[in-house]
């Protein structure tokens, strides 16, 4: 009898995805806008090549961003971004490692929307800072969509903007993340 109960419990658990709550994507989107106020041109870029892994059970997540994969409207901006500001030869990756802190309100196993707070370590340009970011989660079947928007100050990541372009490149970047992960 005990065995039957255990078997049924295990089957239910497997069906609801308790045992398989790893989610992954290689095509998460990270964009940023570092345009200075009143700048004649936009300083922004998009990266559609971001890897993201999420553990739906613990709320732990990793985002890894290949810096070289940010696309700008103008080649020169892209060059300056890689060579002067981000030094992508030296620091090819930006990374966030963290976890959902309000896990009680986060259920990745059933369809719905909920707000989360994610705390962790953000590494850009070889500099790591502790950050807490509010975000939203949408669960639909076996896919999970994470969205977040936050501001990073360039000085916190030792990214120096020369005076000559200070009218174009701002002191901070608004970073937006949108990631749709599939269950693995």
């Amino acid at each position: 009898m005990k065995k039957t109960v255990l078997t049924i419990a295990m089957m239910v658990a497997a069906a609801t995805g308790v045992f398989a709550q790893k989610y992954m994507t290689r095509t998460a989107k990270v964009s940023f806008d570092a345009t200075a106020q009143g700048s004649p041109e936009d300083i922004k870029a998009i990266n559609n090549e971001v890897s993201n892994i999420l553990d739906g059970k613990t709320g732990e997540m990793v985002f890894q961003v290949p810096v070289k994969s940010f696309k700008f409207e103008r080649a020169l901006m892209q060059e300056h971004f890689n060579e002067n500001y981000m030094e992508s030869d030296k620091y090819p990756k930006a990374e966030f490692k963290g976890a959902v802190t309000n896990l009680a309100g986060a259920d990745f196993s059933k369809d719905g929307n909920f707000e989360v707070k994610v705390t962790g370590k953000l590494t850009i340009h070889g500099v790591t800072n502790d950050v807490t970011v509010p975000g939203s989660v949408t669960v639909k079947g076996t896919s999970v969509t994470l969205k977040a928007k936050f501001v990073a100050k360039l000085i916190d990541y030792k990214i120096e903007v020369p005076g000559v372009v200070a009218d174009k490149v701002g002191k901070q970047a608004i970073i937006a993340i949108e990631s749709t992960l599939a269950q693995k």
Binding site: M24, V62, Q64, V67, S69, P92
Partner: peptide, 14 residues
């Protein structure tokens, strides 16, 4: 493609 390094899900080319 251009190699943009290694990551948690493999080596990236852009």
């Amino acid at each position: 493609g251009f190699c943009s390094g290694n990551g948690i899900t493999g080596v990236s080319l852009t």
